[in-house]
Write a protein that binds this DNA or RNA. Structure first.
Length: 589
RNA sequence: GGGAGGAUAGCUCAACUGGAUAGAGCAUCGGUCUUCUAAACCGAAGGUUGUGGGUUCGAUUCCCACUCUUCUCACCA
């Protein structure tokens, strides 16, 4: 027993060594191409060459390509000729081949060497494959989810929640310290309206039975009736003013509604498996807004207009920011200003992100403009991350009009469907309920993340709970198949293998894809775009499913270990990319 | 009317940020389970990239105009 442990330790250490040496080579395949080109292009700097190198869409054109069009003008020759002439001066050692294809020079990497390096790199430390240190552990405050109290959480809030969470995961992967802040919508005139409605028509017992839906009902009622009774709007404002002034009855109602709502939200967050570092909502800033008011006054930024206090933003080409209503009560932006200031002091963030729907663009433009008027240079660290609206039957979802789809219902439908599929396809599965939850929830999350953030989505249940094609379950399934093979192989010890090189071309697509993981994550982090990771996971799952369908893995030959290493690497990277999106990867399904 | 997004296959979306024959998934039609999980794989069909100009060796991508569409434009959030 002991010698075995020692020997595997030793081989692990040697694997680690090769990891550090070979990681460098692997990271620098592009650089290898640049170096090969340099002797042929002495007039150009490394960066200039690097800018021109591209990756061909079609693998028949190699792994990297160098187009020569841009040289035609200065050299007064046809690009095709230039390519031919350059080829003669290129150092081809280390490549499988370098060929000219019209105006392009195509580089083919040494598949066995590069492929083996990639596999070794991943297997040496699967958890950290793709990790980077771009952030040096700087804090990033992320405002996400932020549902409104006393309203059911709709599909719209799902977007903020899962996009924000995925961005937080991705930023953590590249070395930042994300701080997830759930800026609950627990303040504002809407609350006043709810209280007014409760006072008029409310029934304590009815609320106790089903808090959210009942409160929602009152809220819809007062909004509907306000069309014919405009005085209800004034009543709402009055109740909100009472709340801000500390009226005991208003405060009692507020506290009660908030507690009931939070209970319900937590259920959903547990299902999604998302935690927050702070639940400080708008109400939290009630006693902190005076400072903003004072600062604005000190800097002579406040102006009176129609009895209200505003900051003029004409030079930003924005409409004025309304800081204080004519009755003296606060507004959304007032609370957001003090929230941002609080976060800057509390966390010393390097960036502050706001994952909020695209319809609020104007609000965040104003927010940043007011801060820059105040002379806070860190307003540049505030990044608004809008996402497209979710509509229902082509119409905007509106809590006021009751035209919403409840997230909880969708999640439950999806889980139920997953459970049915398991009963059909894999009735022997042990922890079927748990897996159904992972698959059902995974489908919903993935559906929301696979496309570009800013696309607007018209909600269709059938699309969300689809498990075939480009979906979360498709990726989970590829992962489960890979794990199944590894179980059958008896969890092989790759450290013992002499070679993980694969001859033949079948696996090359997978290997290059695996090698791109780090770049994809980096780009996703820079662009705050989880869909890049989602698309990557789909592509890798597809590569693997194709390989799986055409290649027998568990046959005893010289390359069995190498194939298994490939399967293991795919499994790890699929699991890792799903994890970044907040989706689980069950080993069986 | 001002501002900001968007328009690519019947539908939902991609396209490495200006490169090689614009690609996937659904849906449709056809094929593949006594072999590692068919939630899979293979094939067929599907396009004047909203319209018109411009820049460029080269445009879905950049610029201009227009059409359509979504959001937004002070006492909601």
């Amino acid at each position: 027993m002991v010698p075995r442990v020692i020997s595997s330790l030793v081989s692990f250490v040697s694997l680690l060594e090769t990891f550090f040496i070979e990681r460098r080579i692997q990271m620098n395949e592009r650089e290898q191409v640049i170096k090969a080109l340099q002797p042929a292009l002495t007039d150009l700097s490394m960066n200039e060459i690097a800018d021109k190198i591209e990756r061909p869409k079609d693998s028949n054109n190699g792994d990297y390509a160098f187009p020569t069009f841009f040289l035609a003008k200065t050299l007064h020759k046809a690009p095709q000729i230039i390519a031919q002439e350059l080829l003669a001066k290129i150092d081809q050692t280390g490549f499988e081949k370098v060929v000219v294809a019209g105006p392009y020079i195509n580089f083919f990497l040494d598949k066995q060497v590069v492929g083996e390096n990639i596999l070794k790199t991943i297997l040496a430390d699967p958890e950290n494959y793709g990790s980077q240190d771009l952030g040096h552990l700087a804090n990033v405050a992320i405002d996400l989810s932020s549902p409104n109290i006393a309203k059911p959480m709709g599909m719209g809030h799902l977007r903020s929640t899962v996009i924000g969470n995925a961005i937080a995961n991705i930023l953590a992967k590249v070395g930042y310290n994300p701080i997830r802040i759930n800026h609950l919508g627990d303040w504002g005139t809407q609350f006043g309206k709810l209280m007014a409605a409760y006072e008029m028509w409310g029934n304590e017992e009815e609320v106790q039975q089903d808090p959210i839906n009942t409160l929602q009902k009152y809220y819809v009622k007062i909004n509907t009736e306000a069309d014919t009774h405009p005085e209800y709007n004034d009543l709402g404002r009055e109740w909100f003013k009472n709340l801000e002034n500390g009226d005991p009855e208003a405060y009692r109602l507020w506290k009660w509604f908030r507690a009931e709502s939070l209970k319900r939200f937590m259920k959903i967050y547990r299902l999604l498996d998302i935690d927050f570092d702070s639940y400080n909502g708008e109400a939290f800033y009630n006693d902190k807004m005076a400072e903003i008011d004072q600062l604005l006054q000190d800097k002579h930024l406040l102006q009176e207009s129609k009895g209200a206090q505003i900051v003029d933003l004409e030079k930003y080409n924005l409409n004025p920011a309304l800081i204080k209503k004519s009755d003296g009560s606060s507004l959304y932006i007032t609370r957001d200003l003090s929230a941002a200031l609080f976060r800057k002091r509390m966390y010393g963030f390097a960036q502050a992100l706001y994952v909020v729907g695209a319809e609020q663009r104007n609000h965040f433009d104003q927010l940043k403009a007011v801060f820059s008027e105040m002379g806070f240079t860190w307003s540049k660290q505030i990044h608004y991350i809008p996402f497209g609206l979710m509509s229902l039957n082509g119409k905007k979802m509106s809590t006021r009009k009751g035209n919403i789809v409840q997230l909880e219902d969708v999640l439950n439908d999806s889980i139920k469907l997953a459970r049915q599929q398991i009963a059909e396809k894999n009735p022997e599965l042990q922890n079927a309920d748990e897996v159904a939850r992972q698959v059902g929830v995974g489908a919903v999350i993935f559906h929301d993340l696979k496309n570009e953030r800013t696309n607007s989505i018209d909600f269709k249940l059938a699309d969300v709970v689809k498990f075939e094609g480009e979906t979360g379950p498709y990726v989970q399934y590829a992962h489960a198949r890979a794990e199944s093979i590894l179980r059958k192989a008896g969890t092989p010890d790759f450290a013992q293998a002499e070679s993980l090189a694969l001859s033949g071309d079948e696996a090359w697509g997978i290997l290059t894809r695996l090698g791109q993981y780090g770049e994809v994550i980096e780009r996703a982090a820079n662009e705050y775009d989880p869909s890049l990771v989602g698309k990557y996971a789909l592509a890798l799952a597809k590569d693997f499913n194709q390989y799986y369908a055409h290649t027998r893995i568990l046959v005893d030959d010289d390359e069995k270990m190498a194939r298994l290493a490939l399967v293991k690497a795919v499994s790890e990277v699929l699991k890792s990319s799903l994890a970044l999106l907040g989706v689980k990867a069950p080993d069986e399904m």
